[in-house]
Amino acid sequence: MRTFLLRRLLLAVVVLFGVSVFTFLAARVVPADAAAKWVGPKATAAQIARARIYLGLNDPLPVQYLRYLSGLVRGDWGESVVTHQPVLGDIKAYLPPSLELLVLSSLLAMAVGIPLGILSARYQDRIPDQLSRLVAITGVSVPSFWLALLLQLLFFQKLKLLPVGGRLDSVFRLAHSVPVMTGSYVLDGLLAGDWALVGSALKHLILPAVTLAAYPIGLVTRMVRSSMTEVLGEDHIRAARAMGIPNRTILGRYALKPAMGPTATVLALSMAYSLSGTFLIEAVFAWPGLGRYAAGALIAADYPAIMGVTVLVAIAYVVLNLIVDLVHAWLDPRISLR
C-alpha cells in the first residue's frame, strides 16, 4: 500500500515537472516577443529592451526556466500583461465562484449519472438502457456554450422562471449586505442563516450548473453502466443470487461497490474537464469566475494568465487523480496488492 502511494506520488511529481516545462515554453519562449506584448503596442524600442531585461528574457533558457520554476513553487506565477496584477492573486479571486459551480455540477452529475447508469446496466439492451444511453451520449455531445444560450432563452426569455447572468440579483446585492467567508454565496448564506441570500444564489446557480453538468452526466452514466455490466457478469453475482440475496441488494451493494472505483476516476476526470468547461460557459452566464477570466485572457493573448490557469488545472488534475487512487484503494481491498 505504501509503495503504491509512493509510486503514484513520484509519478505526480514527474508529471508536474513536465507541466512546468510545457507552460514555461508556452508562456515565455514561443510567443514571438513577450516583451513587446508586455509594454503594449505603442512602446518604443528602448522600452521593449528595458522590458526584456525586466522579464529576464536575455538570460539563457535554463536560467529563465529555473527562475520560472522557483517562482511557481514560491507562489509567484507571473504578472498578467493586461492588468499587471499577479496571476496567482487573480486566480485566487476568481476561483471560488467557479468552485461553487464545479461542486454543484459534480453533485448533479453523480445524482443523475449513477442511477441512470445502474438502470442501464440492469436493463441492458432493453428500452431503459437505450434511453439512458441516449441521455448519456447527448450529454457528451451537446456543445455547452450552445446549451447555455438555449437554456437562457428558454428559462429566462420565454418562461421568465430563472434569472440570467451574475451570481445574485443586482437589486438584491444593493439592498443586502453579503457576508464574505467561504467565497461560495450558498455556503455563506447557509452559515449565516441568510435564506434570502441562499435562495438568490441558488437561482443564479441552477442554469450554469446544469449546463456544466451535461458532459459529466454523460461520462458518469456510461462509466457506471459499463463497469456495472462487467461486474454483473462476474461469478460472484450469480453466487450471490444463488444465496438468495435480493436483486435490490445485489444491484445497490454487491455490484455497485466494485463499480464505484472506475466511476470515481471518471468523476475526478470530469471535474477537471468541467474546470476547463467553465471557459466556455462562464462568459455566457456572466459568471465572475476563473473560466471568464481565462476566456478574457485568451482574447487578450495574456500568456502569463493563460498559463497560470493551465498550471492550476493541471495541478488540480494531478491532485484529483491522487485522491482517486486513495478512494480506489479504500473501495477495493485488492488494489494494495498491485
Partner: peptide, 28 residues
C-alpha cells in the same frame, strides 16, 4: 416468481461453486 425463488435460494436450497476465488464478492 423471482421473489419466491429468492426465499428458497440460500435457505432451502443452497449452492456451492466450482471456483471459490470468484464466487465471493472481492470488495466485502
Amino acid at each position: 416468481s423471482e421473489r419466491e425463488l429468492q426465499k428458497i435460494r440460500g435457505s432451502k436450497v443452497a449452492m456451492i461453486f466450482q471456483d471459490p476465488a470468484t464466487a465471493f464478492n472481492p470488495v466485502f
